[in-house]
Amino acid sequence: MRSFTLRGLTLYLPEAALKGNLERALSSGRYENHEADALLLHLRPGDRLLDLGAGLGFICALAAGVLGEDAVMGVEAGPETVKLARRNLVANGVPGVKVLKGAVVGAGAGEVDFGQRPAFWASSLKGPDGWPESAEVIRVPARPLGKLLARFAPTAICCDIEGGELEVLTQPLPGVRLVVVETHPQVYGPEGVQRIVAALVAQGFAEAEGAKKDTLVFRRSVGPGAE
């Protein structure tokens, strides 16, 4: 088991999970740094964060340090990654943050196919070009966004679900004032990014400070469902 320290948090993961550029990103502090910067800039007392694609639990732990354990919930599809996230939350003193196992979807119920890859951060649902290379297709619970919103009532969403955001973030977002999303134009092209932007703008969101590269930031103070 290896450990890496980012922003005062310690993340643990097995050697076998250090695939691709992950080790370099963790060692340099670049792991999920754009999302982290945006959230620290915009989160405020009283917010409730829903982290879609919780990964190692870094964003959940970081947000819990600002908002408290009860105000943060994560969702992660990979069964082994869920275990890692929960372990890291305990190790960083925020065991009360819940991480649900399942793949976030726009609608549906039951289970869905999920492509689990050795590089956990590149695992995903089936894309337009088929399954990612070397993916093991497994069945995981489907987590419809509407039910997650009703259950947790978040005011902020952080989303990094390897292309699934095109379906998810074009759904209604009642009560949400902040969205931080890592887009994946390599999956759905610039047209897909524009569909996400258009859907959020139609709900009263505007692009906000903190966007970097493929990570976009949207905020609203007045709009459909906004608090």
Results as ranks from 00 to 15, higher is better:
Pro128Trp: 04
Ala142Thr: 00
Ile138Met: 11
Glu162Ser: 05
Lys101Met: 15
Leu149Thr: 08
Gly130Leu: 09
Gly102Leu: 13
Pro172Arg: 06
Glu165Thr: 07
Val104Tyr: 08
Glu167Leu: 06
Glu165Gln: 05
Ala122His: 10
Ile161Met: 09
Ala153Val: 05
Cys159Arg: 01
Ala109Ile: 01
Thr170Gln: 07
Val112Ile: 06
Val112Thr: 02
Ile157Arg: 01
Arg143Tyr: 14
Val112Arg: 03
Leu169Met: 00
Gly110Ile: 08
Ala135Glu: 11
Ala156Asn: 01
Leu125Arg: 07
Glu136His: 10
Val168Asn: 00
Ser134Ala: 15
Asp129Trp: 05
Gly106Pro: 04
Pro154Phe: 02
Trp131Asn: 09
Pro128Ile: 01
Ala156His: 05
Glu133His: 11
Val137Ala: 13
Gly102Trp: 13
Ser123Pro: 12
Cys158Glu: 15
Lys126Gly: 06
Lys126Gln: 14
Pro118Leu: 02
Trp121His: 12
Ser123His: 03
Pro132Asn: 14
Cys158Lys: 12
Ala103Arg: 08
Trp131Cys: 10
Ala122Cys: 06
Ala142Gln: 04
Glu167Ile: 07
Gly106Ser: 01
Arg117Phe: 02
Glu165Trp: 04
Gln116Tyr: 10
Arg143Leu: 15
Ala142Arg: 08
Glu136Gln: 15
Cys159Val: 01
Val140Trp: 14
Ala142Val: 02
Phe152Trp: 12
Gly110Met: 07
Ser124Pro: 08
Gly164His: 05
Pro144Ser: 07
Val112Tyr: 03
Val137Cys: 14
Pro144Gly: 00
Gly163Met: 01
Phe120Cys: 06
Phe152His: 11
Pro141His: 09
Ala142Ser: 01
Ser124Gln: 10
Ser124His: 07
Val168Met: 01
Ala156Met: 04
Ile157Lys: 09
Glu133Asn: 08
Pro154Asp: 08
Trp131His: 00
Gly163Phe: 02
Lys147Ser: 15
Val104Ala: 01
Val105Leu: 13
Gly164Met: 00
Glu165Phe: 03
Gly108Lys: 05
Phe120His: 05
Ser134Gln: 14
Ala153Asn: 12
Val137Arg: 12
Pro154Tyr: 04
Phe114Lys: 01
Pro172Phe: 05
Pro154Val: 03
Ala109Gln: 13
Ala122Val: 13
Gly164Arg: 08
Asp113His: 07
Pro144Asn: 10
Pro172His: 08
Cys159Pro: 06
Lys101Ile: 14
Leu125Cys: 07
Gly115Met: 04
Ala153Leu: 13
Asp113Phe: 03
Gly130Ile: 08
Pro141Met: 09
Lys126Pro: 05
Pro154Trp: 04
Glu111Gln: 02
Val104Ser: 09
Glu133Val: 13
Val137Gln: 13
Cys159Asp: 02
Gln116Gly: 05
Leu149Gly: 07
Ile161Arg: 01
Val104Asp: 11
Ala122Trp: 03
Leu125Pro: 11
Val104Ile: 11
Gly102Gln: 12
Ser134Asn: 14
Lys101Val: 14
Val105Met: 12
Val104Thr: 14
Ser123Val: 06
Gly164Ser: 05
Leu145Cys: 10
Phe120Trp: 11
Lys126His: 02
Gly130Val: 09
Val168Cys: 03
Ala103Asp: 07
